[in-house]
Design a binder for these strands. Structure first.
Lengths: 103, 103
DNA sequence: ATATTATATCAATACCTATTGATATAATAT
DNA sequence: ATATTATATCAATAGGTATTGATATAATAT
């Protein structure tokens, strides 16, 4: 009972979740943001200045990352600090490993 | 000399390569194809029948995967058999690990 | 040669999304 | 209150791409 159709059916529900994740992180600017946040929490202005992205574009990408729960926002006064959601990223990385790599 | 800007500059050249890979595999149908090919070489008709995709659409996605060198084609008579390019996928997975996960 | 099967390409559509410029909101300071 | 700084949203545009239907190519068989 271990054929590829069965396997693909089992993984099918997770496939959409993985595809959505991959789509979100397949943007160069969003990858840069994630890469930057690996080194710790950053506010929006730090992100857009460091990466040389317009403020509104940075905000836009952060919204997408935030809605996908890949990053977590924390307001402190005027500033909004963003950090990685490590658990979510770990979970989705495991999904990638499961679906794309070994069974 | 170990700040995020420097790191991101080092990784910058690889970032485009990773983004392209992620964009290609962020399509559900292409993920299904890769998932199917994990179990071994398949010809186009097997792929499109197993996954219930139109023949031309299957061919289209295979072309994208082939041009990205994620799969390798081998003609045998009327049939064209596709298989995973494990080395390329391993390389790009390592890139993902480097850039998105640990430094 | 013609027919059949397998695969690829082409053209058109329809949808999605990154980017930009302008504007709005939110918090603080004066 | 007004001003300033930080962030978010909105509208419009431009470019990309998944899908479909029709057609072409490639290999084999009759």
């Amino acid at each position: 009972m271990e054929n590829s159709q069965v396997n693909c059916k089992i993984e099918k529900e997770k496939l959409g979740e993985l595809a959505e994740y991959l789509k979100i992180i397949s943007d160069e600017n969003r990858l840069k943001i994630l890469c930057l946040l690996k080194h710790g929490e950053r506010c929006v202005c730090e992100i857009h200045e460091t990466l040389n992205l317009p403020q509104n574009l940075t905000s836009h990408h952060l919204k997408i990352l935030r809605e996908a729960e890949l990053v977590i926002a924390r307001r402190e006064g005027k500033w909004v600090h963003y950090r990685l959601n490590d658990e979510k990223i770990s979970y989705l990385t495991e999904l990638y490993r499961e679906i794309v790599l070994g069974g």
